[in-house]
Computed example of a mutant assay.
Amino acid sequence: MKKIHSILLAFITIILLAPHASAQTAFTAEAEAARVDDIKFFVENFYYGDIPENLHAMTTIDEIMGALDEYSRYMSADEYMDYVAAVGADDVALHNLTEPAVTSAMLYGDIGYIKINTFSNNMDKAVTKHYSNLKKQGADKLIIDLRYNGGGYVESAEELLGHFEGVKTAYEMKTREGTTTVKPVQSKIKFPKQTYVLVNRYSASASEIVAASLQDQNAGIIVGERTKGKGTIQSFFEFEDGSALKLTIGEFTGPKKSKIHKKGIAPTIDCEHDQELSIIHARLLKDSLAQKKYKQVDDLQGVAADKTFHIHFTQKMNLNEANTSNKVELIKVGGVAVPISLKPNGTDMLDIKPLKQMQKGGSYFLVIHPGFANDTGRTTKHGIFTPITVK
């Protein structure tokens, strides 16, 4: 019974004591007592926390579980099999089994965006593939989204950290046997030095390993909300009937021993809930436009979703389609340029209308590029932009 075989899951180690049975068998009083004794043994030898003073007097599984931390629990064979199937799947997220573990998109401004829903078994291969495709499309900046990511394989977190310049240590792991320093799995494929990582109150476990490691080593910029604060490590001790004990056996911290458990990671850039992507994309757009010497004009708040915008020039302009079609863009913050129609309104005004209604509550940038020609052939030299918020 004491033979141990380990399988690392996300933030978890699974320890097998016997082969799987097809289903859980009903407990006899004798079997129940034996199971209680086994659980007491594991609590006494592996539990990372305060061991209940009256542990030896406890006679039921529920009584023992009620005296341990919130992350320790006993799972039936069916519950355990469902859990392992979900966490072990390569292409599913724990919170949504129909959603891919990794997705990506190109945002306006040559910004790559990679969303990681869970740290699945082959997550790093998927991330590498997505990042390579983004680079082929011209991405020179990167946003990685770990919002709502509750964890997964700890090895995948170590692999993700290996893509960041300057990460020498992944995390510190403390158990009853002492502290272990865990290194990242280094990769030849490196992310941009100023990579932004989005987190929120639901980012936990392996997500927090990544956030703490990057923050402690100044290797990435953490954007969003304080993370959940789930900094403990659980192991599964499996029994001969297929049931299992999920038991807290340690705690992880950042490389500089920054505490995660019950505290979480405070972001470098604070954002309101679910505004993280919009805020950082808007900041990157403003920085990019400022470098090109574009000037901000106005800040339109609470505009209608079907708003028609008007550009008024101070002189007569040549506003035919050939001169205007590529000089105006309406950019969805957190996305790409949206289709618009351009229509001259006299010789000194241009009407701009989105071909589809803008998203209610969404943010946009109206960008006017240089190169507009007046009726004598002279062209505008500087671009302008206007931030827009839709009511």
Rank of each mutant, 00 (worst) to 15 (best):
H369P: 12
V185A: 10
T180Q: 15
D78F: 11
A34S: 08
H261D: 08
L319I: 12
I15F: 13
H310N: 12
L97S: 09
A23G: 12
S22H: 14
T248D: 05
I51D: 04
F41M: 09
I222V: 07
L284V: 09
M317A: 01
E225D: 05
A26Q: 10
I331A: 07
D140W: 02
I39T: 03
G150F: 11
V102L: 04
Q215V: 13
G361V: 07
A85Y: 08
L161G: 02
I249S: 06
D82W: 02
A211V: 00
Q301Y: 09
L342G: 03
S156H: 02
I144D: 08
H130G: 10
I368Y: 01
A157E: 08
N374S: 04
A26N: 09
R35Q: 15
A219R: 04
D140S: 11
G335N: 09
I265S: 00
E251R: 03
I311P: 02
H310S: 15
K381E: 15
H56R: 11
P267Q: 04
S156I: 06
F372C: 00
K136F: 02
D37Q: 14
K129R: 13
R283L: 11
N326R: 11
F119K: 01
E32W: 01
T175M: 06
Y131Q: 04
T380A: 00
I12W: 10
E44A: 13
I221P: 14
K129Y: 10
V199L: 06
V167R: 03
V84K: 08
D348T: 09
F372A: 00
I384S: 14
E70H: 12
I331Y: 04
A23I: 13
E32Q: 14
K381D: 11
Q234T: 14
N374L: 02
S132H: 10
I222T: 02
A93R: 11
I51H: 04
P344A: 06
N117C: 14
E172W: 10
E251A: 05
L160V: 03
A31V: 15
F27N: 10
P370C: 08
F41D: 14
K353F: 06
I61A: 07
F27R: 12
V154H: 07
P255I: 03
I368Q: 04
K286L: 05
V197R: 03
Y113E: 06
M81K: 15
G178Y: 08
A282R: 03
L277R: 05
I269E: 04
N200K: 09
N45A: 02
Y171E: 01
D78G: 10
V303S: 04
H310Y: 15
A337I: 06
T389F: 11
K135Q: 12
P184V: 07
P354V: 04
L342Y: 05
N320E: 10
V328C: 00
Y153N: 03
D90T: 06
T13G: 10
G362Y: 07
V223P: 03
A304Q: 08
R283E: 14
G151I: 01
E177D: 14
V167N: 01
P184R: 06
